[in-house]
Amino acid sequence: MNIIETHNLTRRFGRTEAVHALDLAVPEGSVFALLGPNGAGKSTTIKVLMDLLRPTAGDARVLGVDSRRLGPREREQIGYVSENQQLPVWMTLRQYLDYCRPFYPRWDRDLEQTLLGRFDLPEDRKLKHLSRGMLMKAALLSSLAYRPRLLVLDEPFSGLDPLVRDEFVRGVLEVSELGEWSVFISSHEIEEVERLCDWIAVLDEGRLQFAESTEALLGRFRRVEVTLQGGAANLGSPPPGWLELERTGDLVRLIATQYGPETERACRERFPTGAFAVQAMTLREIFIALARAGRNARKGAAA
């Protein structure tokens, strides 16, 4: 079962199309990351999922319910943390938690206390006097203490220093081990996402580039280096699935997006005398390669 589904989801702001015909399926129990550069449409997608915005076309279903019809029963099972959320910052953390608690029948006081200790949050300080990192942790605490089925995090790492990011990720990881939770996270902070996620989707200019499991993604992307021996070779135009094909002296580099026996065979046909070296890529490298390719494609289309 998918905990989130979108079909042909489109959201426009005037003439600007922030999200275009997005089809997405987030499996239940997964930690799903929505990646993309700034302005890719990640936050807009999440706002539509949370019914903070209405779709211009298409639909989104969260926990099996149309996002426009999410009611208190569904909200009791959804945790939402966003970098821009307007929290009632005039409250102390204690008041804030006291206010949130009655709305959730499944609020876990023990988990609340555990998280308070783990996040090292001062209960008597007003939220407006908390640092940004503490505020995000407080928001996370208030979204985890009722053990939601779905945790939605919108750019949760923005502006956080590395230490707090680490605490935040640890918090999510540790808590996610406590139950069958799904996490949907949008970010452009790839290192943190890599530690968390088992599914990844990439948005660029509102369009979905791909969505697949992290394992499959990391398995199919490879950086290939060919050391040419004995003369020149014509690079030619790259076949489908090759990115960033370039040559520096005797060294040819490329990124194979569908690495497999077919890729090796194609390389050997093109560079028969070359020596091959194949390296696995990090998620960050994959993301940058894809972003660069997308930008080049747009430049080409514009030209």
Partner: peptide
């Protein structure tokens, strides 16, 4: 406006609080 109805970052909307309530 303690619980505003205008804006995209309204806190209460993401909590189990219905508009009618």
């Amino acid at each position: 406006q303690e619980d505003p109805l205008v804006g995209q970052e309204t806190w209460w909307v993401t909590r189990p609080i219905s508009g009618a309530r």
